[in-house]
Computed example of a mutant assay.
Amino acid sequence: MQNTTLKQTTIQTAPDELVAVNGQRPQVGIMGGTFNPPHIGHLMMADQAANQLGLDYVVFMPDANPPHVDHKETIPAIQRVEMVKRAIAANPLFKLSLAEIDRGGISYTYDTIVTLKQQHPEIDYYLIIGGDMVDYLPTWHRIDDLVQLVQIVGVERPGYSKQTPYPVLWVDAPTIALSSTQVRQKVQQGCSIRYLVPEAVADYIEEEGLYHE
């Protein structure tokens, strides 16, 4: 039942509409994460990467069960998907994919990229991650194979080094020290989250009573 509801909220991606122009292959960004909740930092990262790299669009892909070394509690996928849908609605460069949620289980990025490339070998994919996640790359599932399949794009974050043994393409974007954890903490403390998340996301959090416990 939950998957049926989720599919009704999906913003359809349209890779079949992308064709090579002047010999250039379509370029698509992938922005994965738990998005618990999505905040303005996520949107800034995706928008800066899309514009600086000339991407055709960026797909936001909420995970089913994050493979983090440090366990993170999350809320049901249906609520995270609805927040992402609201967060990205105003930007035509942004789309939503339920690929990892529909697949279920642990959301290993390697498995996702392999599937995408099998389905659309004509597309070049760019995996957009924050500078904090670059530090985690050595722990990622089949990371040495993953970097052969996709270009990893790192977005600087305050307090995190750009040094990494992996081929990361860094994007020069405004740095903002904001995380989903901080947003949840603000809600728990009864503080304002205005300007930390899109207004539509803040409204949904209030409507659903999320993060108050």
Rank of each mutant, 00 (worst) to 15 (best):
A87Q: 10
M45L: 14
R194T: 12
S97W: 01
L55N: 04
A202Y: 04
Q118N: 15
T139E: 15
D144A: 12
T10R: 14
A177F: 04
L196S: 03
A46N: 05
Q27W: 00
A50M: 11
L127K: 00
H120C: 07
N51C: 08
G131E: 07
R184A: 06
G29D: 02
V134N: 03
V69T: 06
E100I: 03
Q12E: 13
D16Q: 13
P138F: 08
I176H: 05
V201F: 02
L210C: 04
Y166D: 02
Y195L: 11
I129F: 01
K117I: 15
Q118S: 15
V28M: 09
E73L: 14
T112Y: 10
I129T: 02
Q119F: 03
D63T: 12
E206W: 00
R80M: 11
V168M: 02
M45F: 10
A20S: 14
L116D: 02
V187A: 08
T181S: 13
N36Q: 09
P66F: 06
E17W: 04
L93T: 06
G33P: 01
D102V: 06
T139G: 11
R80L: 08
V150D: 11
T115Y: 07
R86W: 06
G105F: 10
D47H: 13
I152Y: 03
V171S: 00
D203K: 09
V19F: 15
E213M: 13
T10S: 13
D124T: 04
D124H: 10
L127I: 02
S179W: 08
L98E: 02
V69G: 05
L93E: 03
D102F: 05
T4H: 10
D111W: 10
G190P: 07
V81A: 12
V58M: 03
S180P: 11
P15D: 15
D144E: 14
A49V: 05
A64Y: 08
W140P: 05
I11W: 14
I176F: 10
G104P: 01
Y195R: 14
V134Q: 03
G105A: 05
